[in-house]
Design a protein around this nucleic acid. Structure first.
Lengths: 192, 192, 192, 192
DNA sequence: AATGAATGAGGGTTCATTCAT
DNA sequence: GATGAATGAACCCTCATTCAT
């Protein structure tokens, strides 16, 4: 009969794109980018190999799409955080967010951390991730300053390092890592 | 043309093995394991491709050898550390060592951190690295306890996380990262 | 909303078919058959990929259709030529036609010449093109005989070769080729 | 024992390279470049697929190598021709050479002619073949001038076209084409 | 008549590994 | 101990073709 409407097509596309990105995210995070073949991704997404290229120009383009999605989500949270007025509330929000992401978005978190260490191999995302790293510290500095913390500049860097370290240790040790304990430690430290 | 003695043979073997491991380490660290072909390693080591298989069973075996070498070196340092009596001296030694390694053994450090995040891909080294992560904390706990630090258990975990976080941020940001400043921060914190 | 008449349907069909064939002709001629994907043809024709299969069984079938169209046009001209009585007029007609086609039907001309050299790849059109080549010479022979040319059999073959040679050189060198000069040369030679 | 000498390696390389180029030449000429897969070439050459990339960077590089070999051979003959003093002898040499090549180097000849018509697809060889076409005519002009032929410039172009035309017709009709007769026709025409 | 999402075979290419010397 | 030619599985990607709408 008559062909599908544009809207129908868009819905179908959205769904397929998502299926592929979800499958790729999981594989990239658990097996690594180079170890996750397009075939495996397609199988995981229950989709034909060729279809992936209907949505992404290349395997790297698929990776970029995933990363950008992750970063956009992150940007949104930072935005929301900046709408909070009380600095204590802000820091509590940051901790809740950061620890929550480690758990709920484990794959995103693992993939991004992994890629951070392989930036030489992915020049296309180098700047993006570099910038992300650099932009975190001023944010924390400002926050700690508002909280009246002494030596807030050094403390911000230390806190940033600790957060990253907790992240990586949680990724490596997972079930064995006392994530909640670490969160409490920080909450206490900043009297939240 | 007198035949070479056994000792000469062994020296030659040792040299070739070393050349290969050095070349592989650099490539693995900078370009990643999957991105470093045996051909490239052989070229970098100025050695024929086939020779690598005289010394290592497989590419993964070569990786294992490198990791074990790194870990053995680490073990040795821990041993030396434990011979120091004064706990302050001990902690100073730990910091000097850790920060020194980040700079002097940058490739080792980067490779090990990278691999930590890809353990699923290398089940052969999973346990080794897992154990390494887990064994660090009791060491620090003990040290902080001897220093009379309150809440030494939580503090040890926090310190371990911070050290890892500093490591990863230095790897990512490199020249832009204030490594020395972070070291001073820790030295001050523990009054060294 | 009255249903479309049969005639209207047929017109629509004809138009779509034509659009597709024109697009395919241009792509086949400029980029080659194997380098012109159905997708590109559809895009060029501003038509959905699937529609092409409403009109043609396969990509090769589309090629056949184009070739046959070209050959039919050629047949028609030969027919018209044979209605001319004066042999000089006939030859003049042939030259005008042949040189005119090289310019006006450049793509047809290029495609057919190209395919002539790849007949092994397209057995379906082999006989057709073979026959076309063979049928040209008797025609010219007859013509030159009527013009009273000595040794008309050899001259006909030579003329046929020269025409093909001019064609291929024009295709290769295009703007750099003195097509008009060659035409004058032949007109003079046969005193037209 | 001891590894092969450099000379042994070179011989082996030469042989394999040649096998591959021969197989590729035949396939490219008969089935076309895009229709000759690396797999088929390897099978024809009785060699593993991967080996081809030990000798050529890419499929196109393999094509370039074949073309350059062909053109170099051609250059050599032109050089030899220019050492002949008597112009009649020279022209006879040209005819013998050209007609001889059509038969003895049928595949080369077919491949080069085919590619001439697909230059848009192979920008890398465009200039080379263009130049080859353009350089032929002055050579013939000079030759016909020395032979005292009237209107030698137009005649040279006509002769060049005829040679190309004979070539293409021989390629298309092959056994059915009176190649020898055409050669005699030309020999007579120029009184050789 | 028309759309374009979906399929999967097959293309070019890379690379860990083997082996004769 | 050392060489590098040779292998073939597996990679990323393209594309003719099908089909539900």
């Amino acid at each position: 009969m008559s062909p599908r409407t544009n809207k129908q097509f868009e819905e179908i596309r959205e769904q397929s794109r998502d299926k592929i990105m979800m499958a790729a995210l999981e594989l990239f995070a658990t097996r690594g980018f180079h170890n996750s073949s397009i075939s495996k991704i397609a199988a995981e997404a229950k989709v034909a190999k060729g279809l992936i290229y209907n949505y992404f120009d290349s395997k790297e383009d698929l990776l970029h799409a995933i990363i950008n999605q992750a970063l956009e989500e992150g940007d949104q949270f930072i935005h929301e955080m900046q709408n909070i007025e009380d600095p204590k509330e802000q820091l509590r929000y940051v901790f809740n967010l950061a620890f929550g992401m480690m758990v709920d978005k484990f794959h995103y978190s693992k993939l991004l951390t992994s890629l951070s260490l392989q930036l030489d191999q992915f020049p296309g995302i180098m700047k993006t991730i570099h910038d992300r790293y650099k932009s975190t510290i001023p944010l924390l500095e400002h926050l700690l300053q508002k909280l009246g913390i002494e030596n807030h500049q050094a403390e911000a860097k230390a806190l940033a390092a600790m957060m990253d370290g907790i992240g990586i240790q949680y990724i490596v040790l997972y079930q064995d890592y006392p994530l909640e304990e670490m969160k409490q430690y920080l909450m206490n430290k900043y009297d939240l």
